[in-house]
Simulated assay, not measured.
Amino acid sequence: MKLGTLRAGGRDGTLVVVSADLGHAVVARDIAPTLQAALDDWDRTAPALAELATALEAGSVEGRFALRIEDLAAPLPRAYQFLDGSAYLAHVERVRRARGAEMPPSFLEDPLMYQAASDGFLPPVGTIPVSSEEFGIDFESEVCVVTGDVPMGVGPAEAANHVQLVCLVNDVSLRNLIPAELAKGFGFVQSKPRSALSPVMVTPDELGDAWRDGKLHLPLLTWLDGERFGAPEAGADMQFSFHELIAHAAKTRPLAAGTIIGSGTVANQDESLGASCMAEKRMLEIIRDGKPSTPFLSFGARVRIEMLDGAGRNIFGSIEHVYEPYRR
């Protein structure tokens, strides 16, 4: 099933069940007022939401309405935490090689992960405000999962039972602010503003055979100003599955229901499939030419991120934004 959140209804919006073709929806208030409330009581709410989804597809549910994507907030307008990994070592290796550094052997066994902003996510369509182009504006096209309650010390095999939903994210990055922040030794703050989630989140069963072994085996499409920027295969070259990322995050603490785990920038060894962020394209130019030739984003740039199933149907809806100057 597919779940979304209407902007109406306060900071956490109003939970809706969305049809498979993203064309219609029905409010699920009688089951749970918000998606977070549904996740908090998933054993009870998931079967009821699935039953409502079946009725929606059959056209037999009262309150069915035509859905406009622009009426949606992020499926989780705010989350208890967003832990973003870096599971694609092709991306990590290129970034390090471009600055003359080798990838430590430990990266093959120990995932990179940081605590990202989660107190608010941008709506899936609209604008992304940034204070200055000098910050080095970039996008990062990623896959995410949302967990239920995860016990501390869970292993990867058990973690598989705690993946409740899957979605996409544009992990907005301000590249020119990153070096100074990392040099302090405490990680990202100013260089990682609010990100944008896809219009809907889906249960793993909605993905069929494309979801297996804790990975989503479909191309992740990114478009920049109407032209294809990249289409790497999200299931290929993923060093750490989502099950392993969850286990890594839960090694010393439990994870609350509604925790978002990100894959990091999707990248393949096959460079012909394109990239999922401007930084990687620039790194490849540095490796090839000794310097980057592609600038970071300017105001007015339009980025679209989406994933299609084998029949060409949009699974999560499209994340689509124009970057603009921030105004109070």
Results as ranks from 00 to 15, higher is better:
Ala250Ile: 01
Asp171Cys: 05
Ile305Pro: 00
Leu245Gly: 03
Leu220Gly: 01
Ala55His: 08
Pro33Cys: 06
Ala250Phe: 03
Glu51Pro: 01
Gly187Phe: 08
Asp171Pro: 02
Gly153Thr: 08
Asp205Val: 13
Gly148His: 01
Ala25Thr: 02
Gly226His: 08
Leu197Val: 04
Tyr323Ala: 04
Val169Trp: 00
Glu62Trp: 08
Leu308Met: 05
Phe242His: 02
Ala87Lys: 02
Pro156Lys: 14
Val27Ala: 07
Pro111Gln: 10
Gly312Cys: 07
Leu207Arg: 04
Arg194Cys: 06
Pro219Thr: 02
Pro295His: 13
Lys251Tyr: 11
Ile178Gln: 15
Pro111Asn: 06
Leu216Asn: 06
Gly187Val: 12
Thr294Met: 10
Ser19Phe: 07
Pro75His: 04
Ala210Cys: 07
Lys192Ala: 05
Ala32Cys: 14
Met283Tyr: 07
Val266Trp: 00
Ser60Met: 10
Ala20Ser: 15
Pro295Asp: 15
Val172Asn: 09
Ile315Leu: 06
Met152Arg: 14
His217Leu: 00
Glu158His: 11
Pro151Cys: 14
Thr147Pro: 01
Asp213Pro: 03
Val172Trp: 03
Leu72Ile: 09
Pro47Tyr: 09
Pro254Tyr: 13
Thr203Phe: 00
Gly310Ile: 06
Ala25Gln: 07
Glu206Trp: 00
Leu197Ser: 01
Arg11Gly: 15
Pro124Glu: 08
Ile286Cys: 12
Asp138Trp: 01
Val150Lys: 03
Val166Ser: 01
Leu83Arg: 11
Phe82Leu: 12
Val189Ala: 11
Ser318Trp: 08
Arg194Val: 04
Gly13Trp: 01
Glu320Ile: 09
Arg94Gln: 10
Gly63Ile: 12
Asp270Arg: 12
Ser241Met: 12
Ile246Lys: 01
Val322Leu: 07
Met113Trp: 06
Thr14Tyr: 07
Arg97Trp: 11
Val125Leu: 05
Gly23Glu: 15
Asp41Ala: 14
Arg328Ala: 14
Ala231Val: 04
Ser241Tyr: 13
Val322Gln: 14
Gly258Lys: 03
Asp309Phe: 07
Gly59His: 08
Glu134His: 10
Arg64Glu: 13
Asp237Ser: 05
Gly235Tyr: 02
Ser195Gly: 12
Val163Phe: 11
Leu207Glu: 06
Ile31Lys: 06
Asp41Tyr: 04
Gly100Glu: 06
Thr14Lys: 09
Asp43Gly: 07
Leu35Arg: 08
Met307Cys: 14
Ala160Asp: 15
Ile260Gly: 02
Ala48Gly: 08
Ser191Glu: 10
Ala28Leu: 05
Gly317Trp: 03
Ile315Val: 07
Glu140Phe: 10
Ala279Phe: 08
Tyr88Ser: 04
Asn314Phe: 00
Ala257Ile: 05
Leu197Ile: 05
Ala267Cys: 15
Gly185Glu: 11
Ser272Leu: 11
Ala55Pro: 00
Leu197Cys: 03
Glu227His: 12
Leu297Cys: 03
Pro123His: 06
Val150Pro: 00
Met283Pro: 00
Pro193Asn: 10
Phe188Trp: 15
Lys192Ser: 03
